[in-house]
Amino acid sequence: MIKLQVIGNLGKDCVTSNVNGRSVMNFNVAHTEKYKDAQGNQVDKTIWVECAYWSDRTAVAAYLKKGTQVYVEGTPEVRTYSKNDGSTGASLTLRVQSVQLLGQKAAGPGDYSSPAAGNTYGGNTGGGYSQPQSGPSVPSEPVDDLPF
């Protein structure tokens, strides 16, 4: 078995549809790697992953909005297709087994809040999902031992 794990932001809102009596949620996730090339220039490489989440528990779809940061896990499929110019193209598709909401894009650029952060939907724990919890707990005392 091959497992693929992706952390990234949704490129568009989730679309829920019914195929042969089963519910499927389709969305795409963009993951950007940043590195320096041989000349020392900063390079951003973005990989788009098309995701198909086959589940009757579609409550998570309301949280899968454009810009939301997610962690998705599942089995990958590479699909090939013919382009208009006759050449062959390929796309990476992920058959999702679980999705975890990491954050939601807020009003400002680069500013994330996480109303449902840390909640996993799907997975091998009965196929259910957990209800969104309240925000992260805040320590009552200042933390003195910083790692740097």
Rank of each mutant, 00 (worst) to 15 (best):
G122K: 09
L94C: 06
A61N: 10
D37G: 03
A107N: 10
P109T: 01
A52K: 10
S98M: 14
T88C: 06
P115N: 06
W54V: 04
K36S: 02
A116I: 11
Q100E: 14
L92Q: 03
G108K: 09
V70I: 09
N41C: 01
S87N: 15
V72Q: 11
E50I: 05
A59C: 06
R79C: 07
Y71P: 05
T80L: 05
E77C: 05
V49F: 05
S113Y: 02
T120S: 08
T80V: 06
G118R: 13
G110D: 01
P115R: 06
K36V: 00
A106V: 01
L92N: 03
L94T: 04
W54T: 02
P109W: 02
A62W: 06
K105V: 00
Q104D: 02
S91I: 07
A107Y: 01
G110C: 02
A59L: 08
K83P: 01
E77T: 08
Y112G: 01
G86S: 04
V60W: 15
A90L: 03
A117D: 09
V43K: 08
K45M: 07
V70T: 08
Q39R: 12
P76Y: 13
S55P: 06
N41T: 03
A116H: 11
R57G: 07
Y112T: 00
Y112V: 01
S114V: 04
V60R: 11
W54K: 03
L101S: 08
N84I: 00
L102K: 04
A116F: 12
G123A: 13
P76N: 09
S82R: 07
D111H: 00
G89H: 10
Q69S: 15
Q42C: 02
S114L: 04
T120H: 10
V49G: 07
C51H: 13
W48D: 06
S114P: 01
S113C: 02
L94S: 04
T75W: 04
S55M: 07
V72T: 13
S98P: 03
L64P: 08
Q39H: 08
R95L: 06
Q69V: 10
P109E: 04
P109S: 03
K65I: 08
Y63T: 11
S55T: 15
K83N: 13
Q69I: 10
A62N: 13
L101F: 12
G103E: 06
G40A: 11
R79E: 13
T58I: 15
K83A: 03
V72C: 09
S114Y: 12
S82C: 05
